[in-house]
Design a protein around this nucleic acid. Structure first.
Lengths: 212, 212
DNA sequence: TGATACATACATTCGTGTATGTATGTAATA
DNA sequence: TATTACATACATACACGAATGTATGTATCA
């Protein structure tokens, strides 16, 4: 009915984004109508069109709320654990990714939407640019780490550093995939450290001289 | 214009399914209109509605064309390589999955559609029942294999057979994910045997007494 | 000659986008 | 301080296209 104060307006915007998360998760991005989103947020479509240009930019804003860095992640972890060798860093990064997926419900929802509730392949669309950037980012960061690790550890026979980082990306992508699609069966947090150690043990066997 | 012979009708049906694969891959299941599919198949929507009830059953038929067994796969491979120990069987199964994804273009398309171009989570919908069944099937088959393997090989510290099979499912899911989304960067067939061996090496280290 | 294998035409629904209305907060002015 | 003026934050109403489903027409095979 009436104009609200700036703070209330921000709350409205947030409620719209919350509602969009739920609706898009349940019905998919394409089938979630702005009308349903508005109803859940207890506003009308007018409010949505006031805060966002269209559904695409609404989705984009939704994704932007839960920003997922990866090159930053390394720096962040490296600063917190300055003594860590690259292999430890890699382990921590993988653990962090898993733990965030297990603990941050909003992040789970948005990842689920971007990965499984968004059928558009158009590069113009926000979710796809985000996905592509995320993959590239992750791959680049992990490749650099794997190359560093090979200064201390031998690689498994027949593997290049790129192969190793590709395997790690695939493993993480698969964890997301399984955990989001079948949370009951594949809880991410289930024994995650042991799983990560097993994978890293296969990729980078202990150096010839050292025993655990 | 005119009625065709039974064989020609089957060809029409196949052309519709082919067209649907391409359109749904490019635009997504939701945005691919029956009109566009019909045009690509060089028929009208009338032909589609003659062969299929609606878009959902068209999708279902599309999926059914490229059936993906997994419990059958084990039997099949087991018959071809009767001497194989369970660990060899597992290796062969993983290789087979990777090679099919690399070699069978139609399988790639359908997997891509089911995994990434279909935003519906409704359990009534074909693609989701298929996906769920595929995951369950794969998990069951791999779990049984992993349990057999532990009779000959020790598991990595802290892992149960279920953890091991979960990791394998995640790894395979991630391979599909990466290879389908970014075929240029992550070609599945790139050094696949070495990657699989590295993973299995991490999960099932050699038995204490044996040297390679 | 009847069932088949489509093509054509039509009705209906659904969602989007936009144009417009309206009541309130807020700043300038007097 | 009260008033004016304008921007804000929505709600309401309407126009439009796109896609679906169905009803009907039609030519051919068997």
């Amino acid at each position: 009915m009436a104009r609200k104060t700036k703070g209330e307006s921000e709350q409205t915007r947030a409620r719209i984004l919350d509602a969009a998360e739920i609706e898009m998760l349940e019905r998919g991005v394409g089938k979630a109508s702005l009308e349903q989103i508005a109803r859940r947020a207890e506003v009308t479509r007018g409010a949505i069109y006031w805060h966002f240009e269209d559904k695409a930019s609404l989705l984009q804003a939704m994704i932007a709320r839960t920003k997922m860095p990866m090159r930053d992640l390394r720096r962040c972890i490296g600063e917190n654990i300055p003594s860590a060798a690259p292999r430890e860093l890699l382990r921590e990064m993988m653990l962090h990714a898993v733990q965030r997926l297990a603990g941050d419900a909003q992040h789970r929802r948005v990842c689920h939407i971007v990965l499984h509730r968004c059928e558009i392949n158009d590069r113009e669309v926000a979710s796809n640019r985000v996905l592509e950037a995320m993959f590239d980012d992750t791959r680049t960061a992990l490749l650099a780490l794997c190359e560093e690790i090979t200064e201390d550890f031998a690689l498994a026979p027949g593997l290049s550093p790129a192969d190793a980082s590709d395997m790690i990306v695939a493993f993480l992508a698969g964890l997301y995939e399984c955990s989001l699609r079948h949370p009951a069966t594949y809880a991410v947090e289930n024994n995650a450290p042991a799983k990560i150690d097993a994978l890293l043990g296969g990729l980078f066997p202990q150096p010839a001289g050292g025993a655990p």
